[in-house]
């Protein structure tokens, strides 16, 4: 495993009280209109029998993958993974094809379906608040969280802290840090006391989702050149063969359908 040295979030579902302050903070910080959001706070609902009631909450946004599939898929390279972690989006080149939405295994990027070409329909997603991070601040959601359910720091430290927390309370946590390996690692790490599927997180293999398609793409140009060469050879071969045949049987030439000149 290559060591990944940059920042990451850690979310602890056991600490989240579903106050949704992070949603508000995010919308204010990034000027998101009222009917949209980059964060979804998800309540799983009440489970169990009284008095052993339980409910879980998940804060869902871009995972800032180490091998972002959105970035791999975008034909015009509107996405960029910064060295310090964030996966950011550049609306100035986006053509609105929505392939990134198909590619992202977490279903994160979303699109302005309600805008025409004059208003401009763009993709939107969490940016990891580079404008704050670059000035030494924490992302808005982390800074706002009243229970420290969201934390921010070096990815290594966050993973260590997560495992330490599991070790300290094995009865409370599921023994897995979601995002440590999923999709080749993400910069959003999640601890939970209920199965991750109940939080709405998809089961993603450890190999990055874009692995096969990137390998195929690498073969494209060599294949094109090779195939072009083969076709040229065939063309020349058939042409020479045809000529020979024609010169050998001059009598039949009249019947033969002529080649376009």
């Amino acid at each position: 495993m290559i060591e990944i040295k940059h920042k990451a979030y850690l979310f602890d579902a056991t600490r989240c009280i579903d106050c949704r302050a992070c949603m508000v903070a995010c919308s204010v910080e990034n000027s998101i209109p009222m009917d949209k959001t980059r964060i979804w706070v998800a309540g799983v609902g009440v489970k169990g029998e009284f008095p052993n009631l339980d409910r879980a909450t998940m804060v869902y946004h871009c995972m800032h993958c180490e091998h972002p599939d959105c970035m791999s898929a975008c034909p015009v390279g509107a996405y960029h993974k910064r060295d310090d972690g964030p996966v950011i989006y550049n609306p100035d080149v986006c053509i609105g094809c929505r392939y990134c939405m198909n590619a992202c295994p977490f279903g994160v990027p979303h699109f302005d379906y309600d805008k025409g070409i004059i208003a401009g329909a763009f993709i939107d997603k969490c940016t990891f608040c580079p404008q704050r991070v670059d000035n030494g601040l924490e992302p808005a959601c982390v800074a706002t969280c009243p229970t420290d359910a969201l934390e921010y720091g070096e990815r290594e430290d966050m993973i260590k802290a997560a495992h330490a927390r599991i070790a300290a309370h094995p009865e409370r946590y599921i023994d897995h840090v979601y995002g440590e390996f999923e999709n080749g690692g993400t910069s959003y790490l999640i601890l939970s006391h209920v199965p991750f599927s109940e939080l709405g997180l998809p089961a993603i293999p450890e190999k990055p989702v874009n692995e096969v398609s990137e390998k195929v793409m690498e073969m494209t140009i060599p294949f094109a050149i090779g195939w072009g060469a083969v076709l040229t050879a065939i063309t020349a071969g058939v042409a020479i063969y045809d000529k020979k045949k024609e010169s050998q049987k001059p009598a039949e030439l009249d019947e033969k359908v002529e080649a376009p000149k």
Binding site: M71, S72, A73, C74, P75, V76, G77, A78, V93, C94, I95, G96, C97, R98, Y99, F111, D112, I117, G120, A121, F122, N210, S213, E214, V216, M217, T220
Partner: peptide, 26 residues
């Protein structure tokens, strides 16, 4: 009709992302 920004379709020729299958198709 389907693209969000049809007027930018030619961006595929100036901003190329080599890992994108959609670019190859375009």
């Amino acid at each position: 009709v389907d693209l969000g920004h049809p007027e930018r379709i030619w961006y595929m020729m100036i901003h190329m992302n080599g890992t994108s299958v959609l670019l190859e198709i375009g």
